[in-house]
Simulated scan of single mutants.
Amino acid sequence: MAADQIIGLYERHAQAYDAERGRSLFEKAWLDRFLGLLPPAPAVLDIGCGHGEPIAAYLIGQGCRLTGIDSSPSLIALCRERFPAHRWSVADMRLLSLEQQFDGILAWDSFFRLTVEDQRRMFPLFRKHAASGAALMFTSGPYHGEAIGSYHGEPLYHASLAPEEYRSQLDAQDFEVVAHRADDPDCTGHTIWLAQLRP
């Protein structure tokens, strides 16, 4: 199954991904909305941080204390080299257990690599790692389904729940949706969810 190949795919193509991933920060407007919900010098968990550029680099530049996880040892090695003052770990997000809570949790272009069942199981993990009033932001597809793209000739898996189910899953874990936009034309067509843990 293509979903089972994601971890190996990013590790095999880590150097190519680092070279090809744009640094234009088209995500900036959403990252700023996310930051606007956080306290000063926040602890932020970046799930699927990749090589740390441009997103983690921007958050660090805004005063965040970053903890990044990714399944690719090669990508994590690049993060450690570039941002040695922050915490980077090789980990599978589905098994996340850091024994720490964060002011902000981000899963940009990573969460939707999971199957729909694995995505459903992630919401209690988001809650477990969320400090009081924490912000959570992730990208998804615009509707329920699976899609297979391609990266360097290998199948690249994506999946999404329905918008109504994302809302239900967030609500069940005491997150309130702050902002949501499907196929945002100002963010290269991304579908974004921004939520905050209720007091």
Results as ranks from 00 to 15, higher is better:
2 A>R: 12
3 A>T: 12
4 D>F: 11
5 Q>I: 02
6 I>Q: 15
8 G>I: 07
9 L>W: 15
11 E>T: 05
14 A>F: 08
15 Q>T: 15
15 Q>G: 03
15 Q>Y: 12
16 A>I: 12
16 A>M: 09
17 Y>A: 00
17 Y>N: 07
17 Y>H: 13
19 A>V: 01
21 R>W: 14
21 R>F: 11
23 R>H: 05
25 L>T: 04
27 E>Y: 04
28 K>D: 02
28 K>V: 12
28 K>Y: 01
30 W>G: 06
31 L>F: 05
33 R>W: 02
34 F>C: 07
35 L>C: 10
37 L>V: 03
39 P>C: 06
40 P>C: 00
40 P>I: 05
40 P>S: 13
42 P>V: 06
42 P>I: 00
42 P>K: 01
44 V>T: 01
44 V>D: 02
45 L>T: 01
46 D>P: 10
46 D>Q: 03
46 D>M: 02
46 D>H: 00
50 G>E: 05
50 G>S: 09
51 H>T: 04
54 P>N: 05
55 I>K: 12
55 I>N: 09
57 A>P: 01
58 Y>F: 07
60 I>P: 07
61 G>P: 03
62 Q>D: 10
63 G>Y: 07
64 C>S: 05
65 R>N: 05
65 R>Q: 10
66 L>M: 15
67 T>K: 08
69 I>D: 11
69 I>K: 10
70 D>K: 06
71 S>Y: 06
73 P>Y: 01
73 P>C: 00
74 S>T: 09
74 S>Y: 13
74 S>M: 05
82 R>V: 08
83 F>R: 06
83 F>G: 12
85 A>E: 14
87 R>S: 11
87 R>I: 03
88 W>R: 08
90 V>D: 13
92 D>W: 02
92 D>R: 01
94 R>K: 07
96 L>E: 13
99 E>H: 14
102 F>A: 03
102 F>H: 05
104 G>K: 13
104 G>W: 07
106 L>Y: 10
106 L>E: 06
106 L>S: 09
109 D>E: 12
115 T>G: 00
116 V>N: 00
120 R>C: 00
120 R>E: 02
121 R>K: 12
121 R>M: 00
122 M>V: 06
123 F>W: 15
124 P>E: 13
125 L>S: 03
126 F>Q: 09
126 F>Y: 11
127 R>A: 14
129 H>C: 00
130 A>Q: 14
132 S>T: 06
135 A>D: 06
135 A>T: 00
136 L>K: 13
137 M>F: 08
139 T>D: 07
139 T>L: 01
140 S>Q: 12
144 H>C: 01
145 G>K: 11
145 G>C: 11
149 G>V: 01
150 S>T: 14
151 Y>D: 09
152 H>Y: 11
154 E>I: 04
154 E>N: 04
155 P>E: 13
157 Y>G: 04
158 H>P: 03
161 L>G: 09
161 L>Y: 09
166 Y>I: 05
168 S>C: 15
168 S>M: 13
169 Q>A: 02
170 L>K: 08
171 D>P: 07
171 D>E: 13
174 D>V: 07
174 D>W: 11
175 F>G: 08
175 F>N: 11
176 E>H: 08
177 V>A: 10
177 V>N: 03
177 V>Q: 10
177 V>L: 14
180 H>F: 14
180 H>C: 04
181 R>K: 15
183 D>P: 02
186 D>I: 04
186 D>M: 06
187 C>Q: 14
188 T>C: 14
195 A>C: 03
195 A>M: 02
197 L>W: 02
198 R>M: 08
199 P>R: 10
